[in-house]
Every structure is written in structure tokens, then in C-alpha cells.
Design a protein around this nucleic acid. Structure first.
Lengths: 360, 360
DNA sequence: GCCGCGGCGGCAACGGGTTGCCATGTATTG
DNA sequence: CAATACATGGCAACCCGTTGCCGCCGCGGC
């Protein structure tokens, strides 16, 4: 067992292993990267020497020639939004299974930051999942031209997409509210740069048409608790009995804001959210919300990305659509009749000049 | 302007730029990495050619020789725990400022997964922040021997650490409960592998001693809503009037579990959490909790890591301690006297055989 | 006129694997 | 037994920057 001593500070390389195992460096390389290409006994010997020496293959050096880093980037719009936690889990699980490491990038709801981060990371990863990207379509296409890309929560021609069936979710929510006697619904909009925001509003428009429910939109507001609270104030100025919020955080903010002003949810106003975050279940009243299969979103997108990296063409036709479901809790209830009044009676703020309900 | 056409599929390299700018590749390299080393006019020309050709320096190739990837790893125990969101923000902000990319790793509360991920990532990053590591001390030291490491939420000799002043937080909580008339406090333990878990319990032990409050511990439970609900059941078996939970999620779970069993918080039992997550503010009752400067934790740890990477020795003496504060909300209240009974009267589960309050 | 020095650029080795191609030896086939 | 096929391992080029060292040139000083 020859023990060629090396300067101890250096990393162990295939050359060290080769010396010790009395083979050429290329054989060592092959013993790890294409074991079938070398005699199994030799491979075993090499593996043992490598073990003894503590050899670890250097991913960077490998990447230099293979141009495969075994890393993928996952870009999310806002890490403080709990929605992404499960998406990240799903993505990371699949990635880890495929021996990929995930680089998580938080775009902080900023187009600019997102582009900068993607720019910086692009060359070191084998592919990118853009979850709720705030970048422009053209920017995304630019990226997709250079690396495999899967877009999540957004549909975009020529780029593989994974989306949730928001139209159906909105429809379910509208039906639910309709059954409770509500004849108009206010949509509280989230970020304009958010693709689902537009989809949800348009779906509500359609659902309203078919179900004969009037709809209108207020906003945009920041998709946060604070944004919801601001929306609540505006809701007081233009009252409604049923509200569909862009997401759960806003919905919870709305409920809070309303109750602070003495408005009862669901007594006076029914509120529906989107996403079914954990908090939706622990607030009082529990939030009725449209649940998306978050984990599945992350894993499906990543799975698709990995097949593209392995050379598959990338399914750019129709986006992959994941099902959603309506989770009914206590923030929705039968419409308060408030008879004899044209407008719901709970306005405590300054009186409203215009008509309370405006059609879009 | 010579326009040597290259096969279009290939990336532009310094060699392409060199050819076009009529200099040697090394000059191109220097024009970017040590501009002072080359004539400013030459450098400018090179920069223009590079721009025209769309040259981007390949970070991997650079890393191969410099052994600097400009990436750091941030390992967190559980991405679904909202506590880490702000920590990640803080870390990423500082990293981005220093032109570093952050690789986020979710250990999913698993020692094994954490080690595997660290192992896999170690060689591609310049340094590592271990936030709430679940690995053993020796495993951490092993990692620290190979790469700069900063440990967050854990103290460990010979490795730079950033911790929060949990003892003070626990003390404040105990004082608060004491002032409300509680004379014993039950600590609901979180993961045993969690370092703060031990600190919090020991701090409570000490605080109890000084304040003449009896303390005991139950658990461990999983640091989640579900864990808290399980703890609530056990709390019913061994009642208490004041509870300090390992974290907010457990505290919220406890409140839920208790109310489901007809126990009123804070009427019958006061509950204090740890972390001050967003949900602590939106649950009913609002959760009294010990708030940590999460963003500062992430940024301080990362800042320290970057200085180590730049060659600073790494301050391994006393850990850096960040201040905490007690946020009082509605989950704590004056102790319900329940006169004439040795044990609080709210036990609805099977009766308890042993003494209700057991000293540790 | 000679020497020394600083500025600038090039050469070539290097980092650590990967891989196309060839040489050798053995097994298979006709 | 010759001819072909296959298994195995080595050689050397390559991936793309980085950097130590050297050479050239021009300038200033003596």
C-alpha cells in the first residue's frame, strides 16, 4: 500500500488517487463518472484508495468540462410569503432526488432585483425555475434562450409553464358566495406584476357574468397583511358584502382592518382568500380560501426542468395545469339582508359620495 | 474592426475577445480582474470588444484557479418555519451587497439531511452560515475545519457564533408571568437537537430559582402547530396555569388545542411563545412572545462570514449576542385563582394520578 | 553612453476533471 | 489458426480563466 505523502494543505485530487492506486488519472476519473468503462476490480480498488485518502470529486472542475453544475436556481417572488415554503420543499425534494442542489433566490417582489440575481446566477446553474416571476415576458424569454427554464404561476408562450387552475378556484369561490346570497363581489387586487392577479380578476369577471353576480375591483395593494389593512379602509369607502382577496395574507389583513373598524366578518362581510396558508386555519374566523397544491407545484416544475436539462425538448405547448379546491371555513356566511337600505349598513368611515357598487 | 466569427453555440471566452482585440488572453483576463495592471486605453478597448461580443466571465473557470466561487451557503432547519424568512432576508441582503450569491439549504429538521446537503455543497461555496443547525458539535467542527463557518442560534467553542439573548428573554417572560400571579411555569420543549431549546429550559430553571417560581418541562414535541396541539393534550393531563413554549408555532398549537378542549387562554392558562412570528399577531388571542431580531441575526452572521472569507481570523471567543424583547399581547393574564382547589379546575381529560406540579 | 527602473504585455503552467482516440490484451467467431 | 470484436487502460487535448515570471520598451539619472 504505497503511501505517497502529499502536502497536507491541498485537496486530494484524482492525481493523488491515481498515484496511490497505480493507475492513470483518467482511469480514476472514469471509475467515478462511468464505472462501466473500467474493470470492476480496478474500480473497486480505486474507490478504496479514494476513500482512504478522503478524495471528493471537485464539482467545479467537473463543471468546467461538462458544463453541468448539478445546480438549479429557484427564484421566488418573496420569501416572507409562506406560500413559497411548500413550493421550495417540493422543488428541493425533487432536485435532491436527482442529485441537484437548489440555489434559492428571493426577488423581494422586485423586477430589478430578480433580473440582477438571475443574471448573476444563470451561468452557474443548469436550469431555472421561476416561481411567480415579476420579470417581463421578454426578459423571461431572454433567460429561457440561454438556459432551461420552467415558469411557475404564469403562462407564457414558448416557455414551459406550470400553473394552477385559478379560474376554477375563482369560479368555486363565486359559486360559494352566490349560494350564500351575495349578489356582488369585490376583488381586492394584488401586485399588477403578478400574473395570477390578472387571471383571478378576469376569472371573476367571467364567473360573475355567468352566475349573474356583479363584480368590481379595488387596488392594487401590496400582497401583505398591511396591504390588506389598507384595502379594508378603501372597502369602507366603497362597501361590499363579499370580498375575494388576491391572497390569504391580504384577506387576513382585510378581516383585521374591518374588525378594527367595527365591521363583522362574516356577519357583515364575507371574505375569501387565495393559497390556504397555514395562518388561514389559525386566524379567527378561519379563512375560506382557494387552496393550491403548493408542494406539487414545486415538484412538478422541478421535475419538468430536470427532464429538460437531461435533454428533453421542454413541453412548451399548453401549460401544465394543477387542480385547486375551495376550503370553506368561517369567514364566509349568508349575506346580511340589512333590509330597507340600498347599501350595506356598516359604513363607519366618512360617507361615500358615489354609488357603492360600481360595475367594471 | 476584425470580426472573427465563432461557432455560435459556444460561449464567448477571453480567447475570443483576445482575438478580436488583438491582445493575448492573459491581457483580457487582467483587464477584468486587475484593471490597474493593464494600460487604461487597452483595457477600455478590451472592454468594448467584450461588450460587443457579449462576453461574460465564467465564474466556474475563475473559481477553479482562485478557489473562490462568490457563493455562500445558508443552512436553515426548516423552511416552513417563518422565523427563517427574515433571517434569510438579512443574510441575502448582506451577501448580495458583497457580490455573493446565497445557496439556501433546507435541512427539514433532519441531522442526516443537513449533513448530506452540507457535504454536497461545501466544496462549491466560500463559506457557510449554519442557522439552527441540527448537526452534532463535532460534525460542525468538521465542517468548520474545511470552510469558514458561522453558527447562528447556537454557541460552540472554536467556531464563530451569533446567538440571541434567550436567557434574558426567558427571564422577562418569567417576570411577566410572575407579576401576573403565576407561581409555576411549564416549559413545553421543542426538538432536543435544537440548541436554544436547552438554553431556554435552563434559563427558565434559573429564572424560576431567582423569582421563586416553580418550573417543569414537558416534551419534547415537534416545533410545529401539530406539536403544540399534542402538547396541549399532555398539558391537560398535567395541568398548569402558565406555559412557556419553545416557539410561537407550538404556542399557537397549544392555544388551539386547549381551546378545543374547552380551556380558556388566557383565562385559565397563560401562554408565552418565542420568536414573534407574524402569526403571533394575527391569532386570537394575540400571542405574548419573546421577539428576536431576526433580520439582524441573518445579516450579522453573514457579515461575519464574509470578513472571514476575506481572510479575517474569525472571532471565536464569546459568541455575538443579539438583544431580544418581550412582546406582551393577550395570551397572558392574571392567574385564575380557582379557590379551594389544589389543582386548576379545567381538567377535562382523564384525571391525573400523580401530583399536578412536579419539580424538575 | 550605460544602467536601472517602471509600465505593459505575452508565455506558459496551472487548477481538476473529462473524453476522443489509440494501444494492448483477451475472447469470440468462422 | 487467422480474423475480428470487445474489454480495458493510457495519452493528450480540452474546458476557461489566473498568475508567476520574463522580456521589451521608453525614460530618467549619472
Amino acid at each position: 500500500m504505497p503511501d505517497h505523502t502529499r502536502p497536507p494543505g491541498r485537496r486530494v485530487t484524482i492525481y493523488d488517487v491515481a498515484l496511490d492506486a497505480d493507475v492513470s488519472p483518467s482511469t480514476v476519473s472514469r471509475a467515478f463518472s462511468r464505472p462501466s468503462r473500467v474493470n470492476s476490480e480496478t474500480a473497486e480498488r480505486i474507490r478504496q484508495v479514494a476513500e482512504r485518502l478522503g478524495y471528493r470529486t471537485n464539482p467545479l472542475a467537473r463543471a468546467l468540462t461538462t458544463s453541468r453544475t448539478q445546480m438549479i436556481a429557484l427564484v421566488i417572488a418573496d420569501i416572507t410569503n409562506p406560500v413559497y415554503a411548500e413550493i421550495v420543499r417540493g422543488a428541493q425534494e425533487v432536485a435532491a432526488d436527482g442529485e441537484y442542489t437548489t440555489v434559492l433566490i428571493d426577488a423581494q417582489e422586485s423586477d430589478r432585483l430578480e433580473r440582477a440575481a438571475v443574471e448573476r446566477t444563470m451561468s452557474t446553474v443548469d436550469g431555472i425555475v421561476l416561481a411567480s416571476s415579476r420579470m417581463s415576458d421578454s426578459a423571461i424569454r431572454m433567460v429561457a434562450k440561454q438556459r432551461p427554464v420552467v415558469v411557475l404561476n404564469r403562462a407564457l408562450a414558448d416557455v414551459p409553464c406550470v400553473v394552477t387552475d385559478d379560474p376554477r378556484g375563482v369560479r368555486r369561490a363565486a359559486e360559494h358566495l352566490g349560494e350564500l346570497g351575495h349578489d356582488h363581489i369585490t376583488y381586492v387586487a394584488g401586485p399588477q406584476a403578478s400574473w395570477p392577479n390578472g387571471v383571478r380578476w378576469r376569472s371573476l369577471l367571467e364567473a360573475g357574468m355567468e352566475l349573474e353576480i356583479k363584480v368590481r375591483q379595488i387596488g392594487p395593494f401590496s400582497p401583505t397583511l398591511a396591504g390588506g389593512e389598507r384595502a379594508a379602509q378603501e372597502l369602507c369607502a366603497r362597501p361590499a358584502t363579499a370580498v375575494l382577496a388576491f391572497n390569504d395574507q391580504m384577506a387576513i389583513g382585510i378581516i383585521r382592518g374591518l374588525s378594527r373598524m367595527g365591521v363583522n366578518v362574516p356577519g357583515d362581510v364575507s371574505v375569501v382568500g387565495f393559497d390556504n396558508i397555514l395562518a388561514a386555519d389559525i386566524v379567527t374566523p378561519g379563512l375560506t380560501t382557494v387552496a393550491a397544491p403548493l408542494y406539487a407545484e414545486g415538484s412538478a416544475a422541478t421535475r419538468h426542468l430536470l427532464t429538460m436539462i437531461e435533454g428533453a425538448p421542454g413541453h412548451t405547448g399548453r401549460p401544465m395545469v394543477l387542480p385547486v379546491r375551495l376550503v370553506v371555513r368561517d369567514s364566509t356566511a349568508a349575506r346580511n339582508p340589512s333590509p330597507g337600505r340600498a347599501r350595506p349598513g356598516w359604513v363607519r368611515q366618512r360617507p361615500v359620495p358615489g354609488p357603492a357598487v360600481r360595475l367594471p
